[in-house]
Simulated scan of single mutants.
Amino acid sequence: MTAMHPHIHLHLHELRAAELRDRAPRRSATRRPLRTQLGWTLVEVGLRLAAAPPPRTARVA
């Protein structure tokens, strides 16, 4: 059994990745589907809510 040199393995991986990218359908980077925009907006809102400081309670002396 012969071991594959790491550089050859990396090169084969890069070739396969380039082949898959070439076969993938082209999508416009500037225009995203409504579902994607809505999803990222919900993620942003959720992160803002999670990072918000807790509400302050009034102190009565």
Rank of each mutant, 00 (worst) to 15 (best):
L42N: 07
E14C: 09
L49A: 12
P6D: 04
R16Q: 15
A24D: 06
R26S: 06
I8H: 11
A18K: 10
P55T: 02
L42A: 07
L38P: 00
P55V: 01
R59K: 07
L12F: 08
A50K: 05
V43G: 01
T2F: 12
H5K: 13
T2G: 10
P53Y: 01
T41W: 08
A61D: 11
G39E: 04
E19A: 14
M1Q: 14
A52Y: 05
R27K: 14
L10V: 10
M1R: 15
A18F: 02
G39Q: 04
R31G: 00
H7G: 07
L15T: 09
Q37D: 04
R59Y: 05
R35E: 12
T36H: 06
G39W: 03
M1S: 13
P53S: 06
R26E: 05
V45I: 12
T36G: 00
A18V: 00
E14V: 02
L34Y: 09
L38V: 02
R32M: 10
I8Q: 13
H7S: 10
A58E: 14
A61L: 10
L49H: 03
R59I: 02
L47Y: 02
R48H: 08
V60K: 13
H7T: 02
H7P: 00
T36A: 11
I8L: 14
P6F: 04
L34R: 15
T57M: 11
R35S: 11
W40E: 11
R31Y: 05
T30L: 11
L15F: 09
P25N: 05
R31I: 07
L34E: 15
M4E: 15
A51D: 10
A61F: 07
P54F: 04
A58P: 07
T30C: 03
E14H: 14
R27E: 12
G39Y: 06
M4S: 11
P33L: 03
R23P: 01
R32P: 00
R48Y: 04
R16H: 12
P53Q: 03
V60H: 15
L20S: 07
E19K: 14
V43C: 08
P55N: 01
P33T: 07
R48D: 05
T2A: 13
T30M: 08
G39T: 02
S28Q: 06
T41V: 03
L38R: 06
